[in-house]
């Protein structure tokens, strides 16, 4: 449970970090909070030759609501985001989900961007990013590009990020007036990885459900509301079809059948909650 040897670089600027990452290629990894990467280093599941620490870079500390987006920089911890007074109005889904990320002690160091870069299929922050229609801002030494969350996650621990890029920031759309949101998950113990996590959004016309922990990446669907703004009458059939489409497997934590049942039940609960809390 000790990491394999690596060189360690604390760059002075983001440009320094990106140059080192470009030169290091596949042998280099970036670390910010390290709450996903350090366990993988300790278990030697990853053995980089060079570790580049973004943690101290104030350039990456952005946490700002502007022009309809909440921007979260790579050095912003989950605890910092949770402590932001406006978060419940700006991105209420994220405010509801962050307390489920790990524990107080890991949220103190873990970053939102790190969780997205790590791309665990059951993680809450990637799920919220997909559910809200957010974006990932990637940057390498030469350019910056923005990828929609729905296109970013490609599978377990696999994303559209190239080896020479860092996740520079996340962009969450600010909640529209009159929208509703709800989050729930089932795990064996609080703070464990979710067996199933459900994030719901509701507007005047549609409801959306994003599910984590079942498919190989967070996955979202949306349905039109019935006339008068009620839940669609055939919602149970939609949820059942969605639960099967997600294609969960049996594993040591839960059976595929149990996961489908959780999607149907928790899915309905969060959709009802999101609809009823529309402001």
């Amino acid at each position: 449970m000790k990491p394999a040897p690596f060189d360690y670089l604390r760059p002075a600027t983001v440009a320094d970090a990106l140059a080192a990452l470009a030169a290091g290629g596949d042998d280099a990894r970036v670390i910010a909070g390290g709450q996903s990467l350090m366990p993988m280093l300790n278990m030697r599941l990853v053995q980089p030759r060079l570790l580049i620490d973004l943690g101290g870079l104030s350039e990456l500390g952005t946490l700002r609501a502007e022009d309809g987006w909440l921007t979260v920089g790579a050095a912003v911890t989950q605890a910092q985001a949770l402590a932001r007074p406006g978060l419940t109005d700006e991105v209420p889904l994220l405010a509801a989900a962050l307390p489920w990320v790990g524990h107080v002690q890991t949220r103190n160091r873990g970053t939102l961007c790190g969780s997205v870069a790590h791309a665990d299929p059951s993680a809450e922050v990637p799920l919220c990013l997909v559910a809200t229609g957010g974006e990932v801002v990637l940057r390498n030494a030469g350019r910056r590009r923005t990828v929609a969350a729905a296109d970013f996650f490609l599978g377990p621990l696999t994303t559209a990020r190239a080896a020479d890029e860092i996740v520079e920031s996340l962009r969450f759309p600010l909640a529209a007036p009159g929208s509703g949101h709800a989050f729930r998950e089932m795990s064996m113990r609080h703070g464990d990885f979710a067996i199933v996590a459900c994030a719901a959004t509701a507007t005047a016309e549609r409801i959306g459900l994003a599910v984590g922990g079942v498919a190989d990446r967070p996955t979202a669907r949306s349905w039109p509301l019935a006339p008068g703004g009620a839940l669609p009458p055939d919602l149970d059939a939609h949820l059942n079809a969605f639960a099967w489409e997600l294609g969960g497997d049996d594993d040591q934590h839960a059976s595929a059948r149990y996961r489908r049942e959780l999607v149907r039940r928790i899915g309905r609960t969060v959709l009802e909650e999101a609809l009823s809390c529309r402001s």
Binding site: G34, Q105, N108, R109
Partner: peptide, 19 residues
């Protein structure tokens, strides 16, 4: 292994000494 780093409770096993 929880210790306080600059006052904040963190896991010492998920922190490098050089950090």
């Amino acid at each position: 292994c929880t210790v306080r780093l600059d006052g904040i409770a963190v896991r010492a096993c998920l922190t490098l000494a050089v950090q």
